[in-house]
Simulated assay, not measured.
Amino acid sequence: MFLTFVSAMIRRFVKDEEAASAIEYAVIATMVAIVVIAFVTPLGDAVKAKFNLILTNLGGTAI
């Protein structure tokens, strides 16, 4: 009885395409997040350096 139930659950899980789609979307979201982090971090450093240069030229102290 239990073995029949388990095998039916496994068959249903293998046929379920929504789980595969959810996993694909999670992988895509992770890849997008990695790309955003990779590009935003250097951009933020460049903007901070530019503001520090402006602040120093105006006679203030850098951040």
Rank of each mutant, 00 (worst) to 15 (best):
R12G: 06
G44R: 00
A49E: 08
I63A: 10
G44Y: 01
K48C: 06
I34C: 00
D16I: 02
F5P: 01
T56C: 03
A20S: 13
N57D: 05
D45Y: 13
L3P: 04
V27D: 04
K15G: 04
A19L: 14
D16H: 00
F5L: 10
F13Y: 04
P42S: 03
L53G: 06
N57M: 11
E17I: 10
T4N: 09
T61G: 03
I23K: 02
N52V: 00
E18M: 14
A29S: 09
V47H: 07
F39Y: 13
A29H: 09
I34F: 01
V27E: 07
L43C: 05
V14Y: 04
T41Y: 02
T61S: 06
M9I: 13
I28D: 09
V32R: 12
K48R: 12
L3K: 12
A19Q: 10
A26C: 10
E24H: 10
R11T: 12
V14K: 05
I28G: 02
N57R: 07
L53E: 11
I37M: 09
A33T: 06
R11C: 07
A26P: 04
F39C: 04
I28V: 14
M31Y: 02
A62L: 03
I37W: 10
L55T: 14
I34D: 03
A20Q: 10
M9P: 00
A49G: 09
P42K: 03
R12W: 05
Y25C: 06
V14M: 02
F5E: 15
A19V: 15
F2R: 15
E18S: 15
L53Y: 04
A22E: 11
A46H: 05
Y25H: 13
L55G: 03
I54S: 02
T56F: 06
R12F: 04
I28E: 11
G44V: 00
V36H: 03
F5H: 15
V36C: 06
N52C: 01
T61P: 00
S21E: 14
E18A: 15
K50A: 14
V27F: 04
A38I: 03
V40H: 00
I37L: 07
R12K: 11
Y25Q: 15
G59Q: 00
F13R: 12
T4M: 10
L53C: 04
L55E: 14
S7E: 08
M31N: 01
S7R: 13
R11Q: 05
I37T: 12
T61H: 08
L58H: 00
R11F: 03
A62V: 03
A33S: 09
I54M: 10
A8E: 11
V32E: 09
P42W: 00
I10S: 02
F13H: 09
A8I: 07
V14E: 01
K50D: 13
V47P: 03
V47S: 07
